[in-house]
Simulated scan of single mutants.
Amino acid sequence: MADLRHAPAHVLVTDDNKVNRLLMTRNLELLGHSVRCAENGRMALELLQQGSFDLMLLDVEMPEMNGFQVLEALARDPRLRDLPVIVTSSLEGVANIARCIELGAEDYLHKPVNPVLLKARIGSSLEKKRLRDQQKEMVRRFVTPEVAQDLAQSGFALGGRRVQSTVMFADIRAFTALVESQAPEETIELLNTYYTLVFEAINSHGGVVNQIIGDGLMAIFGAPQPLADHAAAGVRAALDMVEMIDLLNAERVASSKSALRIGVGIATGETIAGYTGTHQRATYTCIGDAVNLAARLETHTKEAKRTILIDAATCAALEGRFPVEALGPAQIRGKAAPVEVFAVPWVGAKNEVASR
């Protein structure tokens, strides 16, 4: 482990004894750390809400709010629950130590605290925090902010819950032929450009892209975080996607490249949203009839020769705010009865009419 003098931390010392605070501060500053102090648990929580700290040294016996109560408060706060806490107390007994550890404390040191032991325990706690921060950054990089927020608030558990949501499937048309006509590097660059545009459209309307397979994607509106008017949000996102692809095509055609065409299927209904897979490898997704129907509608865009297709539930939820074209019933693969299908036209401009 690197010398902590080369990795300074911001430490909060919480102790009602002024002498203890001064001596602890001196020892920590000699190690290169910056220090703030609190005289009791209430003051400590106020400082934690105002600023960012890497570690807290916490006494147990304090007025107004003792150390046990502080640990309980930290455990209830998603933003603070991972803050490393080293309890420094004169309380004896295994029961007190066990209670602190059970409440989330990283370690427990008896007073008077040995400076060499304190340095070692601080180093170990900061290293664990660094690894946890790296893990959080990896989660933020490879999942959406909404899923990361859900993990932080609820934790990971296989299974799901029933939600009303809108599901979108989108795909690049004739992608196989496009791949065959250009170098692999050019295809990767095209996909990165494409996903930059469609992610922006989906995310800006509260959607979550939870699945990417080659040139296709699945997005959810209304999970993991609730979203008011999720059907309209999904349609707005689809229209923005088509508009941005149209602008991209102007540049591609000017560069003598073929234009991109996409198909989008959208369906609304009750789904089961949650984590599926195993504890070693899992993904956040939705399962239900609306998911299957959205996927089939995206495929049906080829036969219907329309860019955006929606189901009857989505159409009803729009309440006339968008122009739609009724295409009548269609026999969708996997559905026993014909399904009413509607197209949402894109005319090169905003086509949402004034709300009634």
Rank of each mutant, 00 (worst) to 15 (best):
V13L: 09
L151E: 07
Q135M: 09
L151Y: 03
S125F: 04
A7I: 01
P145I: 02
Q164L: 15
I262T: 14
T166Q: 06
L48R: 15
R99L: 09
Q182P: 11
A354I: 12
E61D: 08
S204Q: 10
W346H: 09
E29T: 11
D150K: 06
L217N: 04
A9C: 09
L191H: 13
R36V: 01
A273Y: 02
K18G: 02
V339H: 02
G32Q: 13
G93R: 10
E92Y: 01
A183L: 11
L30R: 15
S124N: 15
G328I: 10
A219M: 05
M218S: 04
A316W: 01
S255F: 03
I122A: 07
I220C: 08
P345C: 06
E180W: 00
A73W: 14
V208Q: 03
G155N: 14
L197W: 05
A254M: 10
M24V: 03
L58R: 12
G160R: 06
T144K: 05
T299D: 08
V291H: 03
L71T: 04
G263V: 06
R296S: 00
S125T: 13
M138I: 12
G32H: 11
E106F: 15
E319T: 10
F169K: 07
A98K: 14
R99I: 01
M43I: 15
D215L: 00
A282R: 11
R161W: 02
A148Y: 03
A267H: 07
S154D: 14
K257G: 03
K119T: 14
I86C: 03
V291L: 12
A295W: 10
R296V: 00
L12Y: 13
R173Q: 12
L47R: 15
A219L: 07
V85E: 08
E29F: 00
V253A: 14
G214N: 09
F53N: 12
Q225G: 04
T193G: 08
L83M: 09
F175H: 09
V167S: 02
I97G: 00
D77T: 02
H205G: 05
L248K: 13
L239R: 15
N17C: 15
R333V: 01
D82N: 10
A330F: 10
K136C: 01
I172W: 07
Q153N: 13
E72S: 06
V19F: 12
I287K: 05
S90L: 05
E72P: 03
K136Y: 01
G288T: 04
A170I: 01
R252K: 13
L103H: 08
E352F: 04
I310Q: 01
N292E: 05
H33R: 13
L117M: 11
E146R: 06
A313R: 04
S34V: 07
I188W: 02
G206S: 04
L80Q: 13
H110P: 02
N192H: 12
F221A: 11
E29S: 02
D16I: 14
A223Q: 01
S34K: 13
E46S: 07
I266K: 03
H110L: 15
D59N: 12
Q164Y: 11
T276Q: 10
A174W: 01
A183Y: 01
L71A: 02
V341P: 03
A228Q: 07
A326L: 05
G160F: 08
G265N: 08
T314V: 15
F342N: 01
N20D: 11
E298C: 14
R162C: 07
V60A: 00
K350H: 10
T144G: 11
T88R: 03
L80W: 08
A38F: 15
Y284I: 10
E352I: 12
M65I: 10
D311C: 14
T278V: 04
